[in-house]
Computed example of a mutant assay.
Amino acid sequence: MCGIMRESLRRLASDEGIRERRAGGDTRRVRVELMDGDHITVEVHRKARGADLLDKVCDSLDIVEKDYFGLLYLLRGDPRVWVDLGRRLSKTFRNEPWDVRFAVKFYPPEPSELQDDMTRNQLVLAVRRDLVEGRLNCSSITYALLASYRLQAELGDYEPGRVSPALLAESGPIPLRVFTPDMEERVEELYKKHRGQTPAEAESNYLESVKRLPLYGAELHCARDSSEVDIVLAVSAPGVAVHRDGQIMNRFPWTKITKISYNKRTYTLRLRAGEFDDYETHLIFRLTSTTAAKKLWRCSVEHHMFFRREAPVVVERVAGFPRLGSRRVSCRRTLRQLRASAPAHAPPLVA
């Protein structure tokens, strides 16, 4: 009898262990780095897609306008690869915890149209990170203005003696390396002028200043032109711009681009004929690898779709590449759909 009882207990313990393993096997842990540098851990179902994870992160931050955001991860040394929202996460990641970085993917061309204070705050953090990491540059005057708005948003009205290198390092409105005694004095003078602005108004004015910068919201891709000169292609809301040695050499708005394609390491823009041209223009750029060319193509298609289309569309297959991989882009709603769904009674913030 005792032997039978022991055998029954072993089976019961074994069955409970199996159930526990199965229950634990249905979830995966994802470590998410937020834009202020903090980390959170999110649990998702093992069959969850990228969109499910993005929704969970946005819900945890109380973000309503989710379509501006995305998730970055590290792939073969490249830290700025976007998680495919339509793909199962288990096909992208292997060992737990899965690591991603929450980021703004589509920067609104008119930040004043944002309806959610949390979205606006996250956009400010994203711009600050772009400044710190060198993807966005501006003059020292603009640096000082941005710093003064950040101080107003974080600390409220000016008080004598508040502006100091230690405070600027703590609040981190812009890279500390640009601060000199003259810069501190300039920031302090500008900070005084913002008295009475609420945090939301200060952040709104911050973004109104940032949106005029040439590289605001741009995804940067290193390439070479037809003369084998090193350039940077910047993809953003207005279109594709060519930068060389920090200067804008040319701009190609989406309205002028009729086709975007890639083949192996080449990326091609087909431009519609101008008023005095007989033929369309084909601009060919060379990337370092097929992966880099595909990444640039996908970035361009997604930005064109988000900022120019009425609604997401199926992307035509690129010759020579697998059908599913070439057609998959991450864009759930376009900017026009977001604007159409925004409350009509909510006016933009203006200081």
Rank of each mutant, 00 (worst) to 15 (best):
A126E: 01
G239M: 02
C138T: 15
Y143Q: 08
E184L: 15
T180A: 05
P348Q: 03
A13F: 11
A202K: 04
L283E: 00
R270G: 00
R332W: 00
F252A: 05
L207R: 07
L9M: 11
D99P: 04
T334P: 01
N205D: 10
H304W: 14
R332P: 00
L34H: 05
L71M: 09
T255H: 08
V57H: 05
P322E: 04
L145S: 10
P79T: 13
H303T: 04
L190Q: 08
P165M: 14
C331I: 14
D116E: 14
R323N: 06
L168H: 02
R21K: 14
G134T: 11
P108T: 03
E133Q: 13
E280W: 00
F321M: 06
Q337H: 09
P253G: 04
E275I: 05
Q247L: 11
A200Y: 01
G70F: 06
A202I: 08
G172R: 10
M249T: 12
R49T: 10
A342R: 08
P312R: 09
P238A: 02
M305L: 11
E184S: 06
T290D: 08
T288N: 09
R332G: 04
T255S: 14
A342V: 08
A218M: 07
L75P: 02
R10E: 08
Y73W: 13
V229T: 11
A103S: 13
A169E: 11
P108I: 04
R298G: 03
M35R: 07
Y68L: 13
K192Y: 07
V210R: 03
L85F: 04
T142K: 12
R309S: 12
D26G: 09
R80E: 11
D52K: 11
P347V: 13
R195N: 12
R94H: 09
E20I: 15
R317F: 01
D15S: 14
V100E: 04
R286Y: 08
G196Q: 10
